[in-house]
């Protein structure tokens, strides 16, 4: 609870952006790689700027679409964007491909002359991080959850194959840019005239979810902790996610930006749909396990009443049940599951 309440700035104030480039070896490496990347893109020196909208003063979002990642869209499906301060721009998620990253960068440079200091990744999923490489350059610090680097490393081999097979992208290890600044609990980034308050969450959508609160506009950027329209996808912990959903409303914000859905929504009302779906899932899985139903039965029977509420339901719902089922089997005490959240609120 305490972790979630936005605090006043005192935590490590960032180094002035000009003093940064010579921090460590990673930086030197990034110089080299950045140079190589630029060479690779020299045939398209100016990318077409990505369509963005200003949802609050200095807060810009590009709206993704509710599609499965495929070779046509290269996984460019998530909401991504940036926040402009007086001295620094912070990018929040970079998109599903290096090309989308280039286009986001083009959108930034056509919007403002303020330099990019930070690239924040809300979590490890490809539609949020594959544009990272486009931003690698001296003076840019990558920021992520303290488990992001490990998650990138663990997933890279699998993701590389998937990128080739399913996105039509040929990637290599350099496309996974780990954070320079790791957020263990919270971190404040001073952009000049506005502060971004970052919170590293326990396992929820993934095990490396980061939320960003812009103090100036009171805008909460949740990444995939919030799905709207696109059915929520569990890749961390069903129970952990529900716990996080219960705690998030302690953040007072004027609006929220979901990882998938509209570019801005009312807070905390925007959480209701996702909460209803996940609570109902947990409730029904517990009930199925109590009735000694098998995982196959659960996958076939549970939650069909939610189909009309969500896009891509048939692509992720059964998978959500399977992973929730495996997780809840080890919930303690298992024989008499505590029913803290007795299911859907309004049938």
């Amino acid at each position: 609870m305490r972790d979630l309440a936005p605090k006043e700035p005192p935590t490590p104030s960032p180094m002035p952006s000009l003093a940064k480039p010579f921090c460590n070896h990673l930086k030197a490496l990034s110089l080299l790689i950045g140079g190589l990347g630029n060479l690779g893109f020299s045939s398209h020196p100016i990318a077409e700027p990505l369509a963005i909208k200003e949802v609050a003063n200095g807060v810009y979002v590009h709206q993704g679409s509710h599609l499965l990642p495929n070779p046509q869209n290269h996984g460019e499906i998530a909401n991504i964007g940036f926040v402009v301060g007086n001295h620094c721009v912070a990018v929040i998620d970079t998109g599903g491909s290096q090309e989308q990253g280039q286009r986001l960068k083009a959108a930034i440079t056509t919007t403002t002359e303020v330099p990019i200091c930070y690239v924040i990744n809300t979590h490890v999923h490809p539609d949020h991080i594959y544009g990272n490489r486009a931003f690698k350059s001296p003076g840019v610090e990558f920021v992520g959850h303290y488990r992001l680097a490990a998650a990138m490393a663990m997933r890279a081999p699998y993701y590389l194959v998937q990128a080739k097979d399913q996105l039509g992208l040929t990637l290599n290890a350099e496309d996974f840019v780990p954070p320079d600044l790791e957020v263990r609990d919270t971190l404040d980034l001073d952009l000049g005239g506005r502060t971004l308050h970052l919170i590293a969450h326990p396992k929820a959508h993934t095990d490396n979810d980061l939320s960003i609160f812009d103090t100036a506009s009171e805008t909460l950027w949740l990444g995939d902790l919030l799905f709207m329209g696109h059915v929520p996808v569990i890749d961390g912990s069903l129970l952990g996610w529900l716990k996080t959903i219960d705690q998030l409303p302690s953040i007072t914000a004027k609006r929220v930006i979901p990882g998938h859905g509209p570019i801005t929504a009312l807070w905390p009302l925007a959480l209701a749909g996702e909460k209803r779906y996940l609570e109902s899932l947990a409730h029904d899985i517990r009930a199925a396990q109590k009735a000694n139903k098998t995982i196959e039965q659960a996958m076939n029977e549970i939650g069909q009443e939610h189909r009309a509420d969500w896009q891509l339901f048939d692509d992720f719902h059964r998978r959500n049940i399977a992973s929730g089922f495996a997780e809840l089997e080890w919930e303690d005490p298992s024989p008499e599951p505590p029913m803290k959240n007795p299911g859907r609120s309004n049938p």
Partner: peptide
């Protein structure tokens, strides 16, 4: 299916470590 063997394992959490070897 694809990638089932190299897919990341989420079993490194504290609670998973605590119940390692448990059976029921």
């Amino acid at each position: 299916a694809s990638g089932g063997c190299s897919a990341p394992i989420g079993a490194d959490s504290e609670d998973a470590k605590a119940r390692f070897g448990k059976m029921k």
